[in-house]
Design a protein around this nucleic acid. Structure first.
Lengths: 258, 258
DNA sequence: CAGTGGTCTAGACCACATG
DNA sequence: ATGTGGTCTAGACCACTGG
């Protein structure tokens, strides 16, 4: 059965959607695009809730009256835009996007989130003392091999991971980092404990890229999804560089305002 | 012939690449990813020059010893990252990426480009007088329907389109816009002609999205390619809003620094 | 007209996660 | 053992572009 015959058949008799909803293919646009629009509308209308699982590709393709490959073309687009996450051997899940989350400049990204009325949670995935590699040494104006503290966290809003941050600090200026941080879970408190009341953003850099396997895993995304990458430097009042922070954000869920 | 047999055959006898180069598929990674790496290496090594055309998909797939679909999976990834552009009925072409183009804050994006030693060219695609729609009125603090000037340009560096800008100006403050601009092709000169020597960036907003068909066409991209979107406001010394600029940038070719 | 990329079909095997 | 998503094959028709 070739394509035109198939399309005619689809137009003649309705094909049921997920739960009795109707998907009626037209001829003027690619079928995969119509499926994309269809599923997206189910997500945005709230019919498919965040976190809920989609039917298996085989079943879904059959219900929609298309090949699995055609369905996958649509699902792939939805994954790239962050609306869906798929895990091999498990299934595909709806991933809600915080619509137009606004992140204002300055040092405090997290405050911007809270201001939106989101429930912000923080998970610390790594806290270790190391020696500065070339990149860290350059960014923090330290000699190569100087002792540094490396901190990695995942920030979530309303249960959905929003961004990963990897921060590096000069251990010489913050000798009690691990102790204070493990008690308070707050970098600001660590600064205060070392007598740093105010700090200043020296530089912010925003670039684009594609999620690595590790980043995708932490952000509940598909590898290759486009992301923002941020890199910023904070200094104390005297101008000493006290923090180098890198971030990885879902492209479609953030607005940076300066 | 199933997949494992195919992979063994590939490992046993080399498959020639474009011009006698060798593509030797391994078993541990997906074939399409190996093809992706292979073509990318040909681009980055300069073997495939910017602007040059790739062999047809049918030929190329045959040379590489894979199906057209498998080859297309690799080409699709290269398109999404901006390394390739394809035009239906014409062919696929290499699109060089200006590596790590740095755009500094402030009002003047173009100066940042020139500082990199790029040959910057500007093409004006639209210059018209209109009445402010809701968005323009809000951004420029004008009443709905106030007269505005709309300007659309494409900036290219070394012959490759880098970004599109759409600017809106209050016509009341800049009555001779069209006259001066058509003579000088410079917005700064228009400001100076109206007595505005200095202007200031009031706000910059950076977000992410996916290229529309029109944007993709102007930037020599495939529709759906991820892009940066910028929106910024400039004011004169007195704080009057004199320019609302929106930009669309290739995600993988820009670094924004603030 | 011939050649291009875009779309689609109907199968199949695989690695992986879960019960 | 079963079901999931990820990969791959071997065909085909289409719309578009250019000579």
């Amino acid at each position: 059965m070739n394509r035109s015959v198939k399309a005619q058949a689809g137009a003649a008799s309705d094909v049921s959607g997920f739960d009795g909803l109707v998907f009626r293919p037209r001829r003027d646009t690619p079928i995969w695009q119509q499926i994309y629009d269809y599923i997206l509308s189910l997500i945005e209308s709230g019919y498919l809730r965040p976190g809920s699982q989609l039917p298996g590709e085989v079943h879904l393709a059959e219900k929609l009256g298309v090949t699995r490959i055609t369905l996958r073309r649509a699902l792939q687009q939805l994954q790239q835009e962050g609306h869906l996450t798929a895990r091999k051997g498990v299934g595909a899940f709806v991933r809600s996007l915080p619509s137009a989350l606004v992140v204002r400049d300055g040092s405090r990204f997290a405050e911007s989130l809270r201001a939106d009325g989101k429930a912000v949670t923080t998970t610390t995935t790594l806290l270790e003392e190391e020696f500065a590699d070339a990149a860290a040494a350059e960014q923090l104006h330290l000699p190569l091999g100087a002792p540094v503290v490396r901190l990695r966290r995942v920030r979530s809003a309303d249960g959905q991971p929003i961004y990963i941050s990897t921060k590096v600090f000069p251990a010489a200026l913050l000798p009690d980092f691990a102790t204070v941080y493990s008690r308070r879970q707050s970098v600001t408190d660590v600064f205060i404990a070392h007598g740093i009341q105010k700090y200043r953003r020296a530089e912010t850099r925003i670039s684009g890229g594609f999620a690595t396997a590790e980043e995708a895993n932490l952000l509940a995304l598909t590898p290759g999804t486009p992301v923002f990458r941020t890199s910023s430097i904070n200094t104390d009042a005297a101008g000493n560089r006290i923090e180098w922070a890198r971030g990885c954000w879902l492209l479609t869920s953030v607005d940076f305002v300066f």
